[in-house]
């Protein structure tokens, strides 16, 4: 095993890892926020807006991430949107993730029994207070598992950014492989790396889920 190879390419791989993490965190948090906004607009907005959101959700979910990325990165300049690979990568990540997040939040809203909201209205709680004190904390229960799941999916989708030369982990590994004519070791290590990242995220998700469902467990 050519350990010295990994030493030589260490800095590049490390920086690739950094870019992967950056794109993943900024992209998925951005998608989460946008998705939440969409879910709120869907719930409280007027009907034509609902149709628009529904259409957006269907179209984004019905097309490959790679094509969305290409439209933004290669097609962007044609409508005056010049983005660097990393910018395009993060922006398309946000767009790609938002409808999935929106659907998770939407079903989260629906999972809260109507009676609890009625009870809150009966004692005179304001709608804002109901949203933040009654609905949101409880939404963590049905949404934590699907959110974790989708964060994991996004972890893996970061690899696709290599196609538009975002210098993330897969891109750096491919560079290393083609420059040194070694393939097996770098890619095995790379696989292991993603795998660990996914296992780590899912472990973290379990922890969070256990914490937010604390009150539901019988003593």
């Amino acid at each position: 095993m050519e350990l010295d190879l990994f030493v030589r390419y260490g800095p590049a791989l490390l920086s690739g890892f950094g870019v992967t993490i950056l794109c993943w965190i900024v992209g998925s948090l951005g998608g989460l926020v946008l998705g939440f906004a969409l879910a709120c607009l869907y719930r409280f907005g007027p009907r034509p807006l609902r149709w628009l959101i529904q259409a957006y959700v269907e179209v984004i979910r019905g097309t490959p991430f790679m094509i969305q990325l290409f439209i933004l990165y290669f097609g962007g300049p044609h409508f005056g949107l010049l983005l660097t690979p990393v910018q395009a990568g993060i922006a398309s990540f946000i767009i790609y993730g938002s409808p999935y997040f929106a659907e998770i939040f939407r079903s989260g809203f629906n999972a809260i029994p109507k009676g609890q909201i009625e009870a809150a209205r009966c004692v005179g709680l304001s709608e804002g207070r109901i949203l933040f004190r009654i609905i949101l904390p409880q939404m963590l229960v049905p949404t934590t598992a699907p959110l974790t799941n989708f964060f994991i999916i996004l972890t893996k989708e970061t690899a696709i950014l290599s196609v538009v030369t975002v210098p993330e982990l897969l891109y750096e590994t491919q560079t290393m492989a083609s420059e040194t004519f070694t393939f097996v070791e770098p890619f095995l290590v790379l696989s292991l790396f993603y795998w660990l990242m996914v296992i780590g995220t899912s472990w973290l998700g379990d922890k969070v889920e256990r914490r937010v469902t604390r009150h539901l467990r019988r003593a």
Partner: peptide
């Protein structure tokens, strides 16, 4: 776990 944990592109 492995096949779900590694990007399909990889």
């Amino acid at each position: 776990s492995f096949f779900r944990g590694v990007p399909l592109l990889v």
